[in-house]
């Protein structure tokens, strides 16, 4: 048992982050965009926990709590917006809500 290199944890976080980012850029449906955001937040939280355990400091986990709070807030507001979007356009297509174009 020789442990897990910290780098590997961070690489995992990077992969998850990039996947979330790709989803954010690719999908038109707001539901998927929100889920991609959750994935990205989660990967950031993972990076914090990796740091916390690698250096044996609880601060990283405290930050993890803050990230989770942020994710909850973001999800609730995002879903409320999504319901509004759906009520207006009968669809979750984000490109439909492009009235603020220049």
């Amino acid at each position: 048992m020789n442990g897990i290199p910290m780098e590997h944890g961070l690489i995992l976080a990077s992969i998850l982050f990039s996947l979330g980012l790709a989803g954010l850029m690719l999908r038109r449906s707001m539901l998927f965009v929100l889920m991609s955001l959750e994935v990205m937040l989660n990967s950031a939280a993972l990076a914090f926990v990796v740091g916390a355990t690698a250096w044996s400091q609880p601060d990283g986990q405290a930050m993890f709590l803050l990230v989770i709070t942020l994710a909850a807030a973001e999800a609730s507001v995002g879903l409320a917006l999504m319901i509004q979007l759906y009520q207006r356009y009968r669809s979750l297509d984000l490109d439909a809500a492009s009235r603020m174009r220049g």
Binding site: M1, N2, G3, I4, P5, V50, A52, T53, W55, P58
Partner: peptide, 11 residues
């Protein structure tokens, strides 16, 4: 150059 190794010590 992070070289720390996580050995599963509980937090």
């Amino acid at each position: 150059g992070v070289s720390e190794v996580i050995d599963g010590e509980l937090l």
